[in-house]
Design a protein around this nucleic acid. Structure first.
Lengths: 135, 135
DNA sequence: CGGAATCCACCATGATACTG
DNA sequence: CAGTATCATGGTGGATTCCG
């Protein structure tokens, strides 16, 4: 329990500071990762530098608007860097900064958990949905 | 790189299956964790079983509505279990299921990354915001 | 090509009131 | 106490258009 229940202790301390965002890293740092695209972009960049258009194509259904916005947030947080090549037409390359690369390990752990748990979750959903509310 | 770049490989395979939710665990399983409250609830339950009202009080600003909804999702996905004690007034206890407990380790890794990176991110933001767009 | 700006739809969340 | 129902709204994200 020593290791994992550390989360419970963290929760208590966050609670004591009223989840003040300035001191609660989770709300402040991790929130962006729930963005729907951000995580995917980070993973896409795990394979190496990518250009804007490449990212746009490699992530189906993402709009330029959202791609731009997420990239900006990631750049602002120092997770990625942006390199403009003043060619014509312009070419912009994004790559993970050191800070961004350091996120890959914990992120991968989470992804692997998701893969390992996928079937269990799907089964649980079937069971839950199949159970008649009562009767 | 062998370990971490595994994410790049995963991305490629997801891409090949067009990110089909049925086969892409990330979109299907991890999406709920971006919910804004879900992760916090899981962490709150890391300390042991909690009653509805306890959770409601221990997480400031969460509404009963959202708490109920998140708890239902977590229960549906098999991450937590719900135990009703037919006392009067009624008492309902939530606790992590095995599947939910197995999430704690990767989650903690992510939280620890957030804590370790918090200052770096804040610094990066100051730098980014402070930099005059050009001039 | 890369991005900014605008408009718009929807969903997540919040507030409130009601129920068992 | 532990919800449910209803309504209001704000932000997230999509589609489109314009710019350098």
């Amino acid at each position: 329990m020593s290791d994992v229940s550390g989360l419970a202790g963290k929760f208590d301390s966050w609670q004591r500071m009223s989840f003040d965002p300035a001191r609660c890293p989770v709300r402040d740092v991790l929130d962006h990762l729930g963005d729907k695209w951000t995580t995917l972009i980070v993973i896409a960049l795990a394979g190496g530098p990518r250009r804007f258009g490449e990212l746009n194509r490699s992530i189906p259904d993402i709009s330029k608007r959202m791609l731009t916005q997420c990239l900006r947030n990631l750049e602002r947080d120092g997770l990625i860097t942006r390199h403009v090549f003043p060619t014509s037409p312009p070419s912009v390359e994004y790559r993970l900064a050191d800070l961004g690369r350091s996120l890959l390990a914990p992120l991968q752990a989470l992804v692997e958990w998701a893969e390992a748990s996928h079937q269990s979750v799907r089964d649980a959903r079937l069971r839950f949905d199949g159970v008649p509310s009562n009767t």
